[in-house]
Amino acid sequence: MKRSLYKYISLYKEFFKTSLTEELSFRSNFILQSLMNIIFIGTYFFTSFFIFDHIEHIGMWNEIEFLLFLSFALAVDQTHYLIFSPNFWEFSGDVILGTLDFQLLKPFPTLFTVLFRRVAVPGILTVLLTYSLVIYFGIQVELSLLVWLSLPLCLFLSLFLLLGIEVLIAMLNFFTVEGMGINQLRLQVQHICRWPDFIYKNPARIWLFPLLAITSIPVRWILDMSYWSWLVAMFFGVLLLWFFIILLWPKALNFYESPSS
């Protein structure tokens, strides 16, 4: 077990090194991507500031609570961008061009190499920025010690719920000829979960609940510990989702027709 974990960690180290070398070879692109992420975060925050110039609450949250939600949602988003996002774009290309063959031949589970092989290194800066914002607004709302300690778990749960849903969407690549639309669909999931669940009315709220849960459940718990049972339910939900993905992935791979071989 320990040995196999070490194998995965060393492989990920190599993936990271390769991505870093590649990104640093094109420095202007590195700077532009970092700038793009900062603009992205800035637009969300300034939009919220301008809205809160005229109102006092959004749903049950005041400005600081809402900004904590936003920081958390963007922290999840930027962590996802750093670790997973480029891999989804590459996966679409691999399925179309048949280069997924190379991943299938590697002595590692395909899902691992597909999801982790590329790191969007410019995202490091904005990941740090969003984590700092979560800490800053967390101090403002005076979070308890237990909540501070649970923050990494909350981030982990959100990230893996988002990732699981995106993997399910990405599997649609096996059934389409062009992958851009599928990736657009994935981006829409990210858009939806950047807003709290209570802004949506039923039946949209019920139908979209798995997506809204990504950020809303952890932040509900962070702001009000009586939501602990929601967090526990989310934990089991994420486990169930990944169990389902692990079962479904080999079946989906059967639909892959390599155009190159």
Binding site: T176, V177, E178, M180, G181, I182, Q184, L185, L187, Q188, H191, I192, W195, I199, A204
Partner: peptide
């Protein structure tokens, strides 16, 4: 067609719904 709809129409509808 599906790709075109997913790229051109769905994002606008999602933004509107939000």
């Amino acid at each position: 067609k599906i790709n075109f709809l997913l790229m051109m129409v769905i994002p606008v509808l999602v933004y509107f719904a939000i």
